[in-house]
Computed example of a mutant assay.
Amino acid sequence: MLNQRIEGLRDYPFRRLAELIAGATPASNRPPIDLSVGEPRHQPPGFVNELIASRSDSWNRYPPINGTPEFRAACAAWLTRRYRLPAGMIDAETMIAPCAGTREALYMAATVAINPDGGGPRPLALMPNPFYQVYVGAAVLAGAEPVFLAATKASNFLPDLDALTPETLDRTQIMYLCTPANPQGAVADFAYLERALLLARKHDFLLVADECYSEIYSTDTPPTGALEVAAALGGSLDNLMVCHTLSKRSSAPGLRSGFSAGSPQAIALLNRLRTYSCAATPFATMEAATALWRDEAHVDETRALYRAKFDIAERLLAGRFDFYRPQGGFYLWLNVGDGEAATRRLWAEGGVKVLPGAYLTKHGDGPNPSQGYIRIALVSDLASTEEALTRVAALL
């Protein structure tokens, strides 16, 4: 009677983490510091609260599923500025769909793209490995078979596109690509993204670019986006959907606001699906989100904070655990030999909660390629970050 596809999904990483450290109580003289979840703890700009309060008269109205014209226009204008797109390439009315953060958009993209009843072999969904769990859940529940593409140090922490066979590509209906990558922080350059989009168009699948960490980067040049490639190829968004969110960019995960951009056909289907399955973003939230997409000052300040935290990490950990300063994102991906053992020890003896890398990676009969790693999310304030990383350096 129940959906067997759901039962086939493995536990979410944080439930596995809770089981791993169950029974371990950190020493009381060391306040616990949780760096296991990618939940930014910086405060968003003060105008967010002011704008939400100013729209208190809107709570008795159902908001439109496709958002307000002002929100869509702000998102289209931000994409155009950020990725230096030709004027008019992104049509705010037909190419932008608001979503409750990227999670909702990433999940629904699979339902939009995958047709399990088209005849022939079961469709495939490609994704990097390590991966964001939503990619798998979305693929499986849409009726596709997940294909995990190794993204290890040997491939610069991105999937090797040249290793994909024509047979695999012909069965593919969706490919997820996260850049900057979670957890490794690798950034796909223009040539890589061009290769991915050309493959999507040649083999007619949807390339979904998860760019939720695009505004957190360590280099002087912002990460290339998939839309820049689309612009260079003529401006069409066919076979492409990009997903952005305010959770990381604006330190506002609780706002649950993001958007997808894609071809008019894909966005129309996404909005139709959301009509059946989602609650639309409230007017008050939408107005605050609109203001955030129009403002860059708070993003510059946030980026500077993350860079300061990576400075601390480099000072304390350079030369150990295969430490490197990632190009983007806010994670450390450290090779500590045994990720689960290190996680247990850091919590029990140091009160620092991290995530074993193996919990983010699918493996077959052989060893898990991320078994030796831990992921550390540098989401706390500067003082807590330095204290946590000092304990990591001392204990491991």
Rank of each mutant, 00 (worst) to 15 (best):
L227A: 12
R375P: 04
L273F: 11
D189N: 04
A53N: 09
F190Q: 12
Y213H: 15
Y217V: 08
P40Y: 00
Y359S: 06
A74S: 13
P222S: 14
S214E: 09
Y306E: 06
Y306T: 00
D117Q: 08
L126R: 04
E296L: 11
F283Q: 02
L246H: 04
F330K: 12
L316W: 10
A181M: 14
L17W: 05
L198D: 07
E349L: 07
G38Y: 07
M286R: 11
A144R: 12
L334K: 01
E104Q: 15
D189T: 02
G337S: 05
F157D: 07
V134T: 14
I376M: 10
G101H: 00
R84M: 11
Y213P: 10
R103K: 10
G372A: 15
A150W: 07
D160F: 03
R344L: 06
P180M: 14
P128R: 14
F310D: 07
N182A: 09
P116M: 04
L389D: 10
P367H: 01
Y217A: 05
G364S: 09
V208L: 11
D57I: 06
R274T: 05
P222L: 14
Y135L: 12
A377H: 12
W293Y: 15
G38P: 07
L378W: 06
G337M: 06
E104P: 11
D170M: 08
S257A: 08
I90W: 10
V352L: 10
P183T: 01
Y192A: 01
G254P: 00
N335T: 06
L106W: 10
F310A: 12
S277T: 12
A22M: 04
Q43H: 05
A151D: 12
R61K: 15
P223M: 03
S384T: 01
T221W: 05
L35S: 07
V208K: 08
I174H: 13
L233H: 14
R195D: 09
Y217C: 08
A388Y: 15
C75M: 15
I6S: 09
S247M: 01
N335W: 09
P69N: 11
A388S: 13
P128S: 07
M241W: 08
D91M: 04
V48D: 01
A154Y: 09
L382F: 11
I114C: 11
V112F: 09
T224L: 03
L255F: 01
P32R: 01
P166K: 02
I376D: 00
D210R: 03
Y213A: 12
Y359K: 00
E194A: 05
S247E: 02
E228A: 15
A110I: 10
N115P: 03
A97P: 02
Y192G: 01
R375F: 11
A313F: 13
I216A: 03
T179F: 06
T152P: 06
L389H: 13
G329E: 02
A73C: 13
W78M: 14
T102Q: 14
A105D: 05
E301D: 02
L246E: 09
N115V: 00
E19D: 14
P116I: 08
E39T: 02
H244K: 13
M89K: 01
A18M: 05
E287S: 15
Y62F: 08
G101E: 02
R72E: 02
F321Q: 10
L85D: 12
L161F: 00
L141D: 00
G67R: 13
